[in-house]
């Protein structure tokens, strides 16, 4: 009869965390910053169809890095949860905090009970009526939930990007300034990123009921510098 090998719980958790971290570090990074009129989300993403940033509800956006199929499943869960809650109660009752908690539960549960942890890091952002009410919830692969202020960085090389970003970021920046600072932080000193390498969206207080809006490549190119290919047509909504 075969005896199962004993593995210390500490070792098991460490192995899982290492596995998830490796998966996430392979992907490209994403940053979110507060700016004067709302929250700006910028991801390094060469695909024009497989999105890392999306709309969840009127004032809430979702961003994910890591394995696409895993964070997209979480995104769909978020949209469904928010829409059902808004239908059963009121649109005012849908808020980021509850959703972030649900995500933390799912990720935590998967991390401890499933064979493989989810190789994702996600962000739930909610734009408030004033800047002081803006919220950024950063959720890690093991369900750790962090309430961040000002800036948030997800994905590979996050520490270096966060270092560059916090040294330049200011809450009073206009959209253009905030975007160039975010892109500079993502690129680092050795690289430059053009509009084609980026996926950019905002949650803007002045956008009416649905605050979420994607910025078109042409608009991004006019701020972060030229692009070699002609601007793509209007995207999303």
């Amino acid at each position: 009869m075969n005896m199962p090998f004993y593995v210390a719980p500490e070792q098991m958790m460490k192995d899982r965390a290492d596995y998830a971290r490796k998966g996430i570090a392979r992907g490209r990074a994403l940053v979110a910053v507060q700016y004067l009129d709302g929250i700006l989300l910028v991801a390094e993403n060469t695909s024009n169809t497989l999105r890392k940033i999306s709309e969840i509800y009127d004032r809430i956006a979702f961003a994910g890095v890591g394995k696409y199929n895993e964070f997209d499943q979480l995104r769909r869960f978020g949209v469904r949860n928010a829409d059902v809650k808004g239908y059963a109660y009121s649109r005012d009752d849908v808020e980021a905090r509850g959703l972030a908690n649900d995500y933390a539960q799912i990720l935590g549960q998967t991390f401890t009970h499933e064979l493989k942890p989810l190789e994702v890091e996600i962000l739930v952002a909610e734009v408030g009526v004033t800047q002081a009410d803006d919220q950024l919830f950063h959720i890690l692969y093991d369900g750790t939930l962090v309430d961040e202020r000002g800036t948030s960085v997800l994905g590979g090389d996050a520490d270096a990007i966060a270092g560059r970003l916090t040294s330049t970021w200011s809450a009073g920046d206009e959209l253009q300034t905030a975007l160039s600072k975010a892109v500079a932080a993502l690129a680092g000193p050795e690289r430059t990123l053009s509009a084609d390498d980026l996926e950019v969206a905002v949650l803007s207080r002045s956008n009416g009921r649905r605050c979420f809006q994607r910025l078109e490549d042409a608009m991004v190119a006019s701020i972060v510098g030229g692009t070699n290919v002609p601007p793509k047509s209007a995207q999303g909504q």
Binding site: R80, D83, Q237
Partner: peptide
């Protein structure tokens, strides 16, 4: 009407286009 409006928005958000 409420359900219809939600259905259109729900589809647009999940599928990424109206």
């Amino acid at each position: 009407i409420k359900l219809f409006q939600l259905q259109l928005e729900h589809y647009e958000k999940l599928d990424g286009r109206p």
